[in-house]
């Protein structure tokens, strides 16, 4: 089974991923740090969202609430539903960045006071 190299842009981290394996699973298996935040692993929650900046891939069904059509067209996909067909370069987007920052600062902010709707699948970056 062909294995492809996945490179995460802003950490420079690299790992291998089979065509039958999803990028989130491969990352969590091989990287010591959790460079891609792990949520539902099933395409529903959107925390694992990445933008593929280079390479070919296929995806399986992702919840439109967290990955809109336009977004998908611009290369944003859910890592747990992302299957490589060549080497890939990816960058973290959306809630993922927040999670990485949160791990560094240990405390993450709760945001309880906001009352506006911030979850906007097509605009979230």
């Amino acid at each position: 089974m062909p294995q492809h190299r996945i490179t995460i842009v802003h950490t420079g981290e690299e790992f291998g991923c089979d065509e039958e394996d999803n990028v989130l699973h491969a990352a969590s298996d091989q990287l010591r740090r959790k460079d891609i935040p792990i949520g539902c692993c099933n395409g529903g929650c959107g925390v694992c969202k990445v933008r593929v900046t280079a390479g070919r891939y296929v995806t399986r069904k992702m919840s439109r609430a967290v990955c809109g059509q336009e977004e998908e067209a611009s290369g944003c996909v859910l890592a747990c539903k992302l299957y490589p067909r060549s080497d890939l370069t990816i960058e973290v987007v959306g809630k993922m960045v927040r999670a990485i920052v949160a791990r560094r600062s240990t405390a993450f902010s709760f945001d309880f006071r906001a009352t506006v709707q911030v979850v906007n699948p097509d605009k979230e970056t």
Binding site: G39, G44, C45, V47, V66, R98, A99, F108, F110
Partner: peptide, 21 residues
């Protein structure tokens, strides 16, 4: 809130607040 939600870990994991559908 940590022990309120997860009494043994005494810490809220990131997923509790950010993972929902």
């Amino acid at each position: 809130l940590g022990p309120a939600i997860f009494y043994h870990d005494r810490e809220l994991n990131e997923a509790f607040l950010s993972v929902f559908t």
